[in-house]
Design a protein around this nucleic acid. Structure first.
Lengths: 251, 251
DNA sequence: CGGCCTATTGACGCTACTCAACATGAGTGG
DNA sequence: CCACTCATGTTGAGTAGCGTCAATAGGCCG
């Protein structure tokens, strides 16, 4: 029994984690790693539908997704929401709470999730002992700002089909970065979530996906997506050069 | 002559700046203030239309607007753009460049601007000497993330009129925070910029403003805006409670 | 097997875009 | 100072894209 616990704790340490290159600063030595392992909590597990944090909740931690997908959204009137992002393994979330010490959005698990936690109390206390931690966190926040600029472009100027294409290619690139196929993957979110995120109606999402199948760009069956013609799908995205580069990097 | 230069440099120091409460961490002592004044450059002036930074340009500095308005946008194909923000006095910009050490958007002056500069080289070097500087910058970045979430809500779910109302009330609150009237102000950006920012056509912006005048909610003449009925305008925004609070705070 | 939720497809209507004409103000040069 | 041009803003008519409503199909779970 003791052995099992040890094994588990080893598996769950940052040192052993295959995602550490995504969520931690680069170039940490063994010492600094074990320093981090002391302050990061690895035990949290969320079942499908459970909340990680909620709008208005005080800032307790930053969170890293170890496995599963987390959906982040803004609650609006009448129980309606605006989905503002999906977080995959290796991605951090909770930055929204730093500014006013409380969360400005809500995060729930779309499937069973393992979550690592960097408690805010320890953050400022130990940040200086781990070189580059502040810089790294700012770097991640900066990336989030850039991504959200691109979302504004998406919602402001792109047609329904362009949005779907952009979305699929973005997922593709992120799967690819994690060692999965950029061509075949399963969506972890519902059509409803996708539609909401992209500022479209569910029906429009369905129709676009159907249309893209007719055009032989993709093959889709419910959650399953198979990208057949990456080249032409990229052309559909058609906006910033930066974006096109990003997409192709991921392939 | 010497006297003039001295006077100028005194006027331009953070210690004397009326906006320092907006862009600097709170609770700095005299010593820390003068520390900051050493690393912050105050001399930069931009004429209308001049660039502050450009997409792809290496990260040199963070910038604070001292006077004037700066427009930030993403260049797209064919010389088209997507406006992603407007920055007023006391607001920092350039956070987009931290992640990959180069700017992911372009910033230009909408009118004559005075800009303060926090060079990136000095940032990490001196950040630890000024307590709370990192925390403060992260706090500002966090706020920017939250604001952009609200922009996604705007672009994803709101009607044209709701967008205009939200935009006007947002400006109103920001003017108010700076000691100006929340009811009467002059827009520093063109209808074109507003339309682009809000994901609308110029004509739609014009029509909405006209319509809001017919409804006696506002009075508008070109750049000049007079908000007549703040209450009903707020109702128009109609989305998150958080937003409504923010709007009313500013009044 | 039945009930429920999610996804797909079709018909219709509305919002906001496009194209176009026109008005107004700012800036320029004589 | 006025007349000219150009940029910016306003208004109208027609239309396309996407949302809404409704019906149906398919998967999942008890």
């Amino acid at each position: 029994m003791n052995k099992v616990i040890n094994l588990k704790s080893v598996q769950m340490s940052c040192t052993q984690c295959s995602l550490s290159q995504l969520c931690l600063p680069r170039g940490l030595d063994k010492n600094e790693f074990s320093q981090l392992d002391k302050i990061i909590k690895h035990e949290r597990t969320l079942k499908k539908g459970e909340q990680l944090f909620e709008l208005g909740q005080p800032f307790k931690s930053l969170y890293a997704v170890r496995s599963g997908t987390v959906k982040v959204f803004l609650p609006i009137k009448n129980g309606d929401v605006q989905v503002v992002g999906f977080h995959m393994p290796g991605e951090l979330l909770g930055f929204d709470a730093i500014g006013h010490n409380e969360h400005t959005c809500t995060a729930v698990a779309l499937e069973t999730c393992n979550i690592c936690e960097l408690p805010s109390a320890q953050l400022h206390e130990h940040a200086l002992e781990i070189p580059g931690l502040y810089e790294h966190l700012m770097s991640l926040m900066s990336d989030e700002i850039t991504e959200e600029h691109e979302m504004m472009l998406m919602l402001g100027r792109k047609s329904a089909e362009e949005r779907i294409a952009t979305f699929l290619l973005n997922l593709s690139a992120r799967y690819s970065k994690r060692g999965f196929s950029p061509h075949k993957f399963n969506l972890t979110m519902s059509r409803n979530d996708i539609a909401n995120y992209l500022g479209l109606a569910v029906e429009t999402v369905s129709r676009c996906i159907t249309h893209m199948q007719d055009e032989k760009l993709i093959e889709a069956n419910r959650k399953y997506i198979h990208i057949l013609d990456m080249e032409h799908l990229c052309e559909f995205v058609g906006t910033t050069e930066h974006e096109c580069e990003m997409m192709k990097e991921g392939v």
